[in-house]
Amino acid sequence: MGDLLLQIKNLKTYFYLDEGTVRAVDGIDLTVEKGETVGIVGESGCGKTVAAQSILQIMPEPGKIVAGEINYYPDNHKPPVNLARLNPKKDILRRIRGNEISFIFQEPMTAFSPVHTIGNQIMESFLIHNKEMGKRQARAETITILKRVGIPDPGQRVDAYPFQLSGGMRQRAMIAMALSCNPKLLIADEPTTSLDVTVQAQILALLKALQEKYGMSILIITHDLAIVAEMASKVAVMYMGKLVEKGNIMEIYDNPAHPYTKALLDSLPAREKDAEYLKVIKGSVPDPYTRLVGCEFAPRCEEAIEGICDKEKPSVTEVADGHLVWCFLYSDQKEGLGNVEK
């Protein structure tokens, strides 16, 4: 086992709205070790993006971390910093953001400012996080890093505006910005969703190569099970703000335990072997204000046990080494509950 870099414990991020409370992230546990890639997968609205944003407290208003810890271990000799407790507007967190932990956003067109050159935007992070660096040196560093992420002709592109670059180039510039301060953790939120497959393959290869070279950890957030299969060593599956299953990538894809994970994998055309019809998950994700007494997935679950799954929250069971699942099918809990029902 490697050294711990980030440990999320029982994180809850809620949005208190007039219409009700959205429990976007509702008690998740996750660890990221140094140098590894962890994937969070789930459908839209499952809370995966808010979970990632909570780490740096950059979730949109009025999102608030209401409970839990996000322990960040900058190095082995120092005590961890609990990022969840830091004031999002104060210096300590600002020094970490973009410097030690950086973020790649989904849409590089909207993440960049359209009225500044990409060079100026990347330089900014050098100038903010490294007080000794002058403008000239920052520009030189920017050109070096643009070159490193595979942008041809970086000496000229440094003065380009975002609209002058193609989608793939913009995403490379985004990665360059994220890497400018040699982060220990790179959070990539759907980094290739708006790109073509051929460009996606380039970006994924680039991320892998950069990780090998600089040894940073990557937390990759995606709805695409194939990208996680390609990149991650551990995966966590989220549904309605909660984890339903997590573990080693090979274990989860070979022996998925939770009915939701199984159904997601089975619904992929690429995994279906010449079947006439694809397997489907009935219904759709309920609206975010919904609160269920029982398991969040029970209404859509083919294997739901009546009187148990709709009455209680499942607790966690370890079905194999490091393979955790939140489901009554694997839990001893259900016997006790079943008796009560009778």
Binding site: G168, V197, T198, Q200, A201, A205, L225, A226, E230, Y253
Partner: peptide
């Protein structure tokens, strides 16, 4: 060939299969 090789497979055992990378 390049296009098809670029599809990531939802099977982690098949990672590191050869991808024909096209330049940008």
């Amino acid at each position: 060939r390049a296009l098809l090789s670029a599809i990531p497979s939802p099977d982690p055992h098949q990672r590191n299969k050869e991808v024909i990378l096209l330049d940008d």
